[in-house]
Design a binder for these strands. Structure first.
Lengths: 244, 244
DNA sequence: GAAATTGATTAGTGTAGGCTAATCACTATG
DNA sequence: CATAGTGATTAGCCTACACTAATCAATTTC
């Protein structure tokens, strides 16, 4: 005989209407996603975020965004100026930075410890970032040796710090022939671009030098980590480099 | 300047009405939880599972369970006999075993790699088991060296295998004075009991010998891993041992 | 200054997953 | 046999999020 008190009474906290689950996590995944999106949009424009911009970002309808903004306001995470867009509150920024920090730690963890290919970790991390508690995320960070960048080169900052100003970071497509530097970060915006770069052996940390700039929008011939590549302008915009 | 194509377009698959998210995962967390609960109940009684038993197990109301059972049936995961309870189909069993496998791998991972205390991992794993893809779970399993037991001693089996019959596994409280063996598994049913055992240094893998059995339900004096403990009957029922 | 375009909000729906209260269908008992 | 318990289901409701269609408000254009 075995297994009688068959385990798993699991304190499944029930946030009414949210199914089982959410065991103690403070916000719903949707709320965290909205906070993250608001943070990013606010960060790039430094202006209040228009409902439509938020909706476009999350690929949802404008009414959905409008609705959820009222929700965020009620949760104290955002303030909504009647017709003119929304801003995160300090609390909202903390939520957003927490999610972003967890996301990047998870990406590190997936590549460095689980050896999942570099170009797949973003999607997996999107799934996990809402289920990993702060405790687990911090334990991951420690286990990884407190890294300060994720595999795409994005910084892992403290929850109460803004993303650092990248300073002299430039997109590769703005560089002239002869320029040299180091590849610091690649945007994870387009998964297929990530996959291509992974296949070509292009990744953060490598030395970069622009061999030539081709006419008629053909892009650049670039040596990256000892290998030569043709980098078209679309790809060049996703690669961020720092002069040395 | 930096961070312009501000990342994270993330292919957020939208299962209508499920918020953002669920990027490709086949079943909702609720469905997985129901399958898991059905599997466990079926496994212990070998009979169809009564709606009420399922509801009690998941700490939800009977109507909710009744409702979801119809849902599971429509998904092809269970068959519901009109008034007489439900059974998992082969597909349902696969779902359940998948969740259980992921849960146990995650528990291993949390203790062995992240060094999260043994008595806390169950709750964290409950949260994560629905967000970790099969791919990530298997990568974890490989990174851990393909363990065959989780930290509580529960077996990690292939998705298409049933939990092995534990054979000669017995609850500690059934043992007489003088019996000796090894602690194979502790039930993770009661978190506070786990916490107590962790504090006392009681964990799977240790040698066990019953020194004496006390009268009037006082339990047993037991040497576990070199330390003496008074084990009351409530605790003894949660500890599973194998004679040597 | 009237009309058209644009952006945000309201109104109403749908789905997933919970709940309570009431009902139905057996069983078990006086 | 009638009556009282059980256990399951139905009916009806609630929350979180999403959607479409329609409206409102502001700006642009003629």
């Amino acid at each position: 005989m075995a297994l009688p008190p068959s385990d798993d009474t699991s304190n499944r906290q029930r946030t009414p209407g949210t199914g089982l689950r959410r065991g103690g996590l403070p916000f719903t995944p949707a709320v965290e996603d909205y906070a993250k999106a608001l943070y990013r949009l606010e960060q790039s424009t430094h202006d209040p975020v228009a409902t439509g911009a938020l909706a476009a970002r999350l690929e949802i309808s404008a009414p959905s965004a409008s609705n959820m903004l009222r929700n965020l306001e009620q949760l104290g995470l955002a303030t909504v100026a009647p017709g003119r867009g929304a801003r995160l509150t300090a609390a909202g920024r903390d939520v957003a930075r927490g999610v972003i920090r967890r996301h990047r730690i998870i990406e590190c963890f997936l590549t460095d410890i689980l050896h999942i290919p570099w170009d797949c970790v973003h999607e997996e991390a999107d799934l996990l970032e809402h289920a990993v508690s702060a405790r687990v995320a911090e334990a991951m960070w420690e286990a990884l040796g407190r890294p300060d960048r994720d595999p795409h080169g994005d910084p892992i900052t403290a929850v109460d710090d803004d993303d650092p100003d990248f300073g002299v970071l430039e997109a590769l497509d703005t560089w002239e022939a002869g320029a040299t530097g180091v590849l610091v970060r690649v945007s994870d915006a387009r998964p297929e671009a990530l996959r291509y770069m992974a296949a070509q052996g292009i990744s953060p940390g490598l030395d970069v030098s622009v061999l030539s700039t081709e006419p008629f929008g053909a892009g650049q011939r670039v040596r990256i980590g000892g290998l030569d590549h043709m980098v078209g302008p679309e790809l060049g915009r996703l690669i961020f480099v720092q002069r040395i």
